[in-house]
C-alpha cells in the first residue's frame, strides 16, 4: 500500500507538469504614471535647488571647503565623538543598573531608581548641563558632617573637574534615565516563567538577571539603543551650556565669529554630523537585521519542528 502511494506521488506530479504551460510569462508590467510624474517634479526641483545653492554667494563654498578639514574643526569632531562614546557607555551601564533596580524586590532600590528617572527625564538636558557647569559655584566643596557636632569629611575637588568631565557626567546621567526605560521594556519583554525556572534551579536574583533575563532582553534593547546613540551625537552640541566650547558645533561657531561667515561653517558642522549619523545608521541597520534574522529563523523552524520531532522522538 505504501508502494502504491509512493508511485502515485511522482506520476501525479509529472502529469501536472506536462499539462502546465512551460513558456515564461511575458506580461506588460503595471504602469505607475503618477508616481513617475511626482518623481520627475521632485528631481527637477532638487536639481534647481542644488544649482542655485552652488552659485548662491552666502553659502560660500570656498570657505566651506577651506574649513571642512580645518584643524579646529577636526579636533571638534574628535571631542564630539568622544563625548558621544563616553556618555553612551556610562548611560548604558547606568541604565541597566537603574532598570534592574526598578525590577528588584528591594523597595529602597526601587524608589531610588524611580526618583533618578523622574528627575533626569523630567528636566531639559540643556538646563541640567547649565547646572553641571555651575556645580563648583553652587557647591565649592562638599562636606559631610553632623550639625553642631562637626565635619566628618570634605571633598574639595569639585572645581577641579574639567569641563569635559562635567559634560560627560551631564550627558550620561540624562541619557541613563532614557536608557533605563529602554532596558526596562527589554526586561519586561522576557517571559515571567524564565525567572521562575531560574529560581527553581536555585539561582539567586542577581545570577538569574545576569545569565538568563538580561541576555534575552538584549534583543529588544539593542535597536532603540542605536537611536539613542544617534540622538546623543547631536545632543552633544548642547555642551556649550556647561560651557564646553571645543566640540564640533562650538568650533565652527568660534571660527565664524572671526570670519563673519556663519552659513558655510554651519554647513561644515552639518556635514560632519551627517557623516557620523549616517555611519551609525548603517551600523544600526546591520545590528537590527541580525537580531531580526534570529526571530525570522525561529518562526520558520518552529513550523519545521514537528517533522524533526517525529524523526528523532
Amino acid at each position: 500500500m505504501s508502494d502504491a502511494n509512493q508511485n502515485a506521488g511522482p506520476s501525479e506530479n509529472s502529469d501536472l507538469h506536462s499539462a502546465m504551460p512551460t513558456e515564461k510569462i511575458k506580461a506588460i508590467p503595471l504602469r505607475h504614471p503618477w508616481r513617475n510624474l511626482v518623481a520627475a517634479v521632485l528631481l527637477v526641483a532638487s536639481i534647481s535647488f542644488l544649482y542655485d545653492a552652488s552659485h548662491r554667494e552666502i553659502y560660500d563654498w570656498a570657505t566651506f571647503t577651506h574649513y571642512l578639514f580645518n584643524h579646529r574643526v577636526l579636533t571638534g569632531v574628535i571631542v564630539t565623538l568622544e563625548l558621544t562614546a563616553y556618555a553612551m557607555v556610562i548611560a548604558v551601564l547606568l541604565g541597566i543598573g537603574l532598570a534592574v533596580m526598578r525590577q528588584s524586590p528591594n523597595p529602597v532600590l526601587k524608589s531610588v531608581a524611580w526618583a533618578f528617572i523622574w528627575f533626569f527625564r523630567g528636566t531639559p538636558v540643556y538646563v541640567q548641563l547649565v547646572f553641571w557647569g555651575l556645580l563648583s559655584t553652587v557647591y565649592p566643596s562638599i562636606t559631610f558632617g553632623i550639625p553642631h557636632v562637626g565635619d566628618i569629611a570634605t571633598i574639595p575637588s569639585i572645581n577641579n573637574l574639567s569641563l569635559f568631565v562635567l559634560a560627560v557626567i551631564g550627558l550620561s546621567l540624562n541619557e541613563a534615565a532614557y536608557m533605563a526605560e529602554i532596558v526596562r521594556a527589554g526586561l519586561l519583554s522576557v517571559d515571567r516563567g524564565q525567572e521562575e525556572a531560574a529560581k527553581a534551579l536555585g539561582m539567586g536574583w542577581g545570577l538569574s538577571m545576569r545569565r538568563i533575563i538580561i541576555p534575552q532582553a538584549m534583543r529588544i534593547i539593542i535597536p532603540p539603543t542605536g537611536n539613542e546613540v544617534i540622538s546623543m551625537l547631536k545632543t552633544t552640541s548642547l555642551v556649550t551650556a556647561i560651557p564646553l566650547t571645543i566640540d564640533l558645533y562650538m568650533a565652527t561657531r568660534d571660527i565664524s565669529a572671526t570670519t563673519y561667515k556663519p552659513v558655510p561653517l554651519l554647513l561644515v558642522a552639518s556635514t560632519w554630523y551627517l557623516v557620523f549619523t549616517s555611519v551609525l545608521m548603517v551600523l544600526q541597520y546591520f545590528l537590527e537585521k541580525r537580531f531580526a534574522r534570529g526571530y525570522a529563523q525561529m518562526g520558520l523552524e518552529v513550523q519545521a519542528a514537528p517533522l524533526e520531532g517525529n524523526g528523532a522522538g
Binding site: 531560574a198 527553581a200 534551579l201 545569565r211 538568563i212
Partner: peptide, 30 residues
Amino acid sequence: RRDIGMVFQKFNLFPHLTALENVVEAPIRV
C-alpha cells in the same frame, strides 16, 4: 530550592541557550 527540581507546564527552557547549555547552566553557576 537547589534540592527541589521543578518541571513546568510550559517547559520554561532558556531560549537563548542550547539544550546542553540549559542543562549545565545551574550546575556550573549554582
